[in-house]
Structures are given as structure tokens and as C-alpha cells.
Write a protein that binds this DNA or RNA. Structure first.
Lengths: 333, 333
DNA sequence: ATGAAAGCGCTAACAT
DNA sequence: ATGTTAGCGCTTTCAT
């Protein structure tokens, strides 16, 4: 592994000149620079990242923590973040917390040491914990809003409004919300918007659950929804909706004849099943881009140390709006 | 950020003693050590990784490259690798190549700089490229076998044998293989085993495709399979099988009445659709574990530099066997 | 425009 | 058992 000195002596200059030729081309004579670059290339020189990090005090890495890679929503989110940083000097560290709160914290701590900034998708982490991490690194929260920490989340309003309007128009007056994890930010959001919207339209909303936010959770939820005598359900997410659909099919309950189903997320599977799932699509790639851009901006803004951080602007972002996708699991009462 | 020297002076010892207390506890007096640890803890001391990497010449990171995170098979693989390294000193860097060969190479190069070793899932990369990467870092290939580079792949034999036996028993004598990407290692494997097995049992096998290894590819494949007048298809993977299933349903072709379908992979969706998919399940977690273990072993074996690498033992690994999952998309002719 | 020298935070001989 | 010293590869003053 050839070092900067090898290149320097090959080019007949000092190490500093090589460094400059590489990092501040304008500070070095064009011809010298050409020679240096040529030698570096010939020797296959790759700057040692550790040495560079040591002196610069930054790693040029960013961390990304998500609850569950196998969840298509997060998979898409990761892809978005990776794609965004692919064209920058940063590489991304990924960690999967297995939906476990303790792991979330452990991994976040581990990331802090290895990256200059962190995108955190940790729906269950306490606000206090989040702030403590924010104190140690440049942090951006995704899928969760905070007043103290820069954060990006989608706007549930439009999609849920549309869903309620749709279900109402089909004549449903008694519906259920199949809740996900009690303490998750997005469960609370979904519930809140749903409750408000239903109240407004005079739809009676009963809450069932919480259910595991997976296929199995929905499978169980289906029977309880039937027993609760509702004509439509809003599932916490598509996985749950898919479970409901499967269970109703197994019980020979017609969908949407006897029960309408609205999912959340628009995972790929939602459109592969029969009948394809009506669902509230979430703008994951947009969230990923926005969170990445926010982190990159914070990383790049050379804030003189100690200078106060400007409050992150939170413009209304239309690209972060959810929207209803009407497919075939919803029908008239 | 407090340095090792801050801890040293707080504990009234030298930096080396702190270093030793942390890294080689047995070399330091128990009482001294206690004091050092106490001070380190009190000061919130975190060793600077860059400095450590610089002197040690290792990063304590490993890289992981996969073609597509959104593919459930790889998602599971990633999870497996992450889980494995979670209990070690290593953190894992993830990169998604978007199924693109050029990106594969670029990312692999980027990883080499940041990690001590690499698990590469690059079905399309040329053998030459692979070897060139292997020359630069500790490399383990996953889902692909190589004679020169340590590699782990599942054993397609058992699952495919069972699938062919199953289809044969149901009376099918003319089947199709719905091929995936021509140049992918696993497509070649699947095809080869299928061809051999069918020949052995006197089943006529026609090859269709290649198709895009996604739902859409299968959607297209369905019509061609019907036209090819086969009674059963082996899809390249479950996504393709799911597409076939959906298309046949749209065309009111009974499954398995008129057409039997066998998938590959056993992705979660396979069991969520109706009828649930008969498929050859692949032991992804086992592959992930095996690849991770192999990499960790290579990383840990302190090979005196220049010493020849021992040929990696490749024991028959029963846990790497695929196996048929009979569900409901296969039936008698 | 370039070089010499110092130092980032840590570990590992080498002394004692 | 502990301290002293040198040095990992790089960037960045400070001279020239």
C-alpha cells in the first residue's frame, strides 16, 4: 500500500505538495500537479482514511438505523438514502435494530463513533434518548417529528382524509382501526388523524389491537374485526391488511362484500394479491431524500464551533404527502 | 471529547497504562485498572477509532454488498449478516448496487478503503473483477462459488430434485423453466440442476425467457408459458412465480388445474397469496451465517504477512440445502 | 509555489 | 507493573 510519501518521492516533491495537489489543486502549480497525479495514479495510491480522519476529525461516513430491513417500507427507505449518498463523499453504515429498543440505543452509540452524522428511524426510542444522541452527533430523525431535533416525516393528513372520504362515500359508518405498536410514532399519528377524520364525517371508529405489525397480526385481527361488527377496517399497515385479507378469505368472508379493507404503505405485495389492496401510499423515497439532504446540509455547513445551530426550517413539503390508492378491497356496504 | 491523555492524568497514570487497562487488562495492576476504568467512565471517554485504526492498520468494519436490498431474499441475507456481526467488534457497511455491474465495482472499491473485509453478493461480476478485489481485501463471496476465492453458496440439488420429483409424481411431462438473468450465477445453477433432473426423469423441459426477475417479468412469462403448451412451470424465483400466478388469474386460467407453478426462494409473499405458492425454499439465514463466520475467521486468523492462505475447506453443509415447500400452486395434470 | 515541522490520538516496543 | 518514546499517514501552519 503506497503512502503519500511514496508518491511524493516518485514525483520529486514533498508530501505536503502531494496533499495539496490532491485536496487543494489551486494551491499548486499546474505542471507539478499533473506530475503528482500521474505518479499517484501509477502507484495506485489511495489515501489512508484513518490517517485523514484522525487529522481532519471526520470520518466521511454517515450512519443509518432502521427497525427492520426486511420490512419493504424500510428497504425502500434505505435504498433512497444509499442512492442519495452514493454521489457524495459519504458512505453509509447500516444497522437493523430488529424492532428492539435496547438495540436501537446500542447501535446508535456504536454509529456515533464511526460516522459524522446519523439518520435515525427509531419509532420507539424515547425523546430523552434521542436528545442524548443528538448531543453527540449530527442527527436527523426520519419518520418522526421532534421540536428539538431536525426531523423529516411524511404528512399523513391527505392520505387519511382521502381514505376516510372514500370509505364514507361507500356508505360505511362503523369502522375499525387495527392498531400497531402502541408506542410507535407512526401508530399514534395514524390513529390521531383517523380519529379526527372519522369524527368529522360521523363515522364511528372502534380501535382494536394492538397487533403485531405483520401478516400474523392481521390474521388475528380479522376475527376480532368481524366480531366487532364493523364493515370496514383501516389496518395499521399493509402487512396487517394482507393478514386480514388472507384470514377473511380462509373464512370465506367476501372482500369487499362483507368487509372493506384499507391498508397503509403500499408495499409491493399489496398489488400482487387478489383482490389488490386499497391502501394509503406513503412517499418513502421522498422522505429518504429529504432526510438525506437535511443531514448532508448539516454536515457540510461549516459551523464555526460553538456557534448556535439555526432552527431547521420546516417548509410545507407537498412531496411528503401520503395519498390514497383505491384498488379492490374497498366497496359499498 | 476527552482523549486518552485526559483519562491518564485524571487517573494519575500514563497514557500507555490507560491503553493497556482498556485493551490488555491482564497487563495492569487490578487496582490501577479499576481507577483507570472509573476515570474513563466518568469522563465519558470513547477511544478515537481513527487513531486506533491508523496505528493498528485495521478498521474493525466489514463491508456487505448486495444487488438489491428491496429483494426480500437479500433483505434476509443482510439481516443475517448484521445479526452475526452485532456480537463482534465489527460494524457493517452496506451497499446496494441496484443490480448494476458498474456500481458493483465502484462500491466494492469504496468498501475496500473503509473495511477490513468484504462479503460480496455480486452475481453478475466477472471472475476477473472478483479476483482483483480479492487481491485488495479479505473477501468472501456469497451465493456464488469460486475456486480461487472463499465462497459460500446454497446447495440447489436437494430442493430442485424434490421439486422435479413432485411435479413428475403429479403427472407433468412437459414443463418450462422461466429463466432469470442469463449471466447470473444462480440462474445458471437453477437451470443446470433443473435440466439434469428433468432429463433423468424423462420430463421435457423448455426454457423460456430470460425474464426480468420481478413480478412484471412473471406477468409476461405467463402468456408465453401458456403458448408453449406446458402444464407446469419452474419460475426463476418467487417474484416471477407471483407474476405468473397473477396473470393466469387475470386470464381465468385455473392454477393448479391448467398450470402448476413452482417458485424459488420462499419469500414472505409466497405464503400470503391465494393459492399459496409451492416453492423451493433457500436457506438464506444459513448462508448469511456461514459467509459471516467465514469472513470473521479469516479476519481473526492472524496470518503472518506473506504467509500463504490455506485453501478454504468446503465441507458438505447440510444446513445449506434447499428444500421443496409444497403448497397449493401444484396439482395433478 | 513549495518544503519543513508539528501534531491529530492511539498503541507498542523498549526501558525501568 | 508502569513510564518513555517513537511512529502510524495525513494535513496544516509557518517559513522560505
Amino acid at each position: 500500500m503506497s503512502s503519500i510519501r511514496a508518491v511524493a518521492s516518485a514525483a520529486g516533491v514533498s508530501a505536503s505538495t502531494v496533499s495539496r495537489a490532491l485536496n487543494n489543486p489551486e494551491l499548486v502549480n499546474a505542471e507539478t500537479r499533473r506530475r503528482v497525479l500521474e505518479c499517484a495514479d501509477r502507484l495506485g495510491y489511495r489515501p489512508n482514511r484513518a490517517a485523514r480522519s484522525l487529522v481532519l476529525g471526520r470520518t466521511t461516513n454517515v450512519g443509518l438505523i432502521v427497525p427492520d430491513i426486511a420490512n419493504p417500507v424500510f428497504a425502500l427507505f434505505i435504498k433512497g438514502v444509499e442512492a442519495y449518498f452514493r454521489d457524495t463523499e459519504y458512505a453509509v453504515f447500516l444497522a437493523d435494530t430488529d424492532e428492539d429498543a435496547a438495540t436501537e440505543v446500542r447501535l446508535a452509540e456504536a454509529m456515533v463513533e464511526r460516522a459524522d452524522g446519523l439518520i435515525l428511524c427509531a419509532p420507539r426510542m424515547s425523546g430523552m434518548r434521542v436528545r442524548s444522541i443528538a448531543a453527540k452527533t449530527t442527527l436527523v430523525l426520519a419518520n418522526r417529528l421532534s421540536r428539538t431535533v431536525p426531523s423529516i416525516a411524511m404528512d399523513f393528513g391527505p392520505g387519511i382524509d382521502q381514505a376516510i372520504g372514500h370509505v364514507h362515500a361507500l356508505g360505511h359508518r362503523r369502522c375499525a382501526f387495527l392498531a400497531g405498536p402502541r408506542d410507535s410514532w407512526s401508530n399514534r399519528q395514524r390513529r390521531r388523524f383517523l380519529a379526527a377524520g372519522c369524527a368529522e364525517r360521523g363515522i364511528e371508529l372502534v380501535e382494536l389491537g394492538p397487533y403485531e405489525p405483520r401478516f400474523g397480526g392481521g390474521y388475528r385481527a380479522a376475527d376480532e374485526a368481524l366480531a366487532a361488527d364493523v364493515t370496514a377496517v383501516f389496518a395499521y399497515n399493509d402487512l396487517v391488511a394482507l393478514g386480514v385479507l388472507a384470514r377473511l378469505r380462509d373464512r370465506d368472508v367476501p372482500v369487499p362484500g362483507r368487509m372493506s379493507i384499507v391498508g397503509f404503505d403500499d408495499v409491493p405485495t399489496a398489488s400482487m394479491v387478489a383482490p389488490p389492496l386499497t391502501t394509503v401510499a406513503v412517499p418513502i423515497p421522498a422522505v429518504a431524500r429529504a432526510a438525506s439532504a437535511m443531514l448532508l446540509a448539516k454536515l457540510r455547513e461549516a459551523r464555526p464551533q460553538g456557534a448556535a445551530e439555526p432552527p431547521p426550517p420546516r417548509p410545507p413539503a407537498p412531496e411528503l404527502a401520503t395519498r390514497l390508492l383505491i384498488r379492490s378491497t374497498t366497496g359499498p356496504t
